[in-house]
Nucleic acid binder design. Sequence first.
DNA 1: ACAATATTTCTATATTTATGGAAATATAGT
DNA 2: ACTATATTTCCATAAATATAGAAATATTGT
Lengths: 107, 107
Amino acid sequence: MDTKSAVTLLSSIAQEARLDIFRLLVQAGTSGLSAGVIGERLGIPNSTLSFHLKELSYAGLIHSRQESRFVYYSANYDAMNTLLEYLTQNCCAGEQVCCPDVTCETV
Amino acid sequence: MDTKSAVTLLSSIAQEARLDIFRLLVQAGTSGLSAGVIGERLGIPNSTLSFHLKELSYAGLIHSRQESRFVYYSANYDAMNTLLEYLTQNCCAGEQVCCPDVTCETV
DNA sequence: ACAATATTTCTATATTTATGGAAATATAGT
DNA sequence: ACTATATTTCCATAAATATAGAAATATTGT
């Protein structure tokens, strides 16, 4: 990952509506949620939502798939992890003061 | 952490120069680097650098301390970790597909 | 007080980004 | 083909952000 790609990913979630959308999808799991459900849950108008979903998709932080009349959006966990690893790469010069506690919870 | 705080933190690193600065400081460890050294390493003009350092400071992602004529900047690892945890909170609905590999490297 | 070095503020300009109503497009059932 | 539902595009407007030269402000040593 290079700086530009990382900035693209970060910019895509450095905005209130988009961060809400992304976290909702992160929590929703691989099946994702339809655009309509996302908009309803977060109270975002159609056109605004569409704009933000496009931003997140372009950045590569979410995937979309068409399913009948609905478009389902889901988090791209690989992209998320690559970003987190980029941010913490070679962190704290071996001082062990940075250690993030980011673990996948077992069911 | 709430959405707004997270957006502030993310916005502060969703910019090429600032992401470079932040990663440099993350890798520099707790002692940090002086503004001059940062600017020299990254090739950023004084005024531009100062603007970006202020952004990162306001966001709370870096600390600064005066030491004689120099101002040393260092990463705020706590803020970084809080942010990463916020992003991955309750992730992937227990499907175990998200697990980021963000571990502190032992020396 | 002066000179040298380090950093910040001021300023103007340029660029990017967010918003949501209305219209257009897509999909599926009848 | 028609209707209903879902989503996206178009558009104009509003707001926020990045850039760097020049000047101003620290800080330290002589």
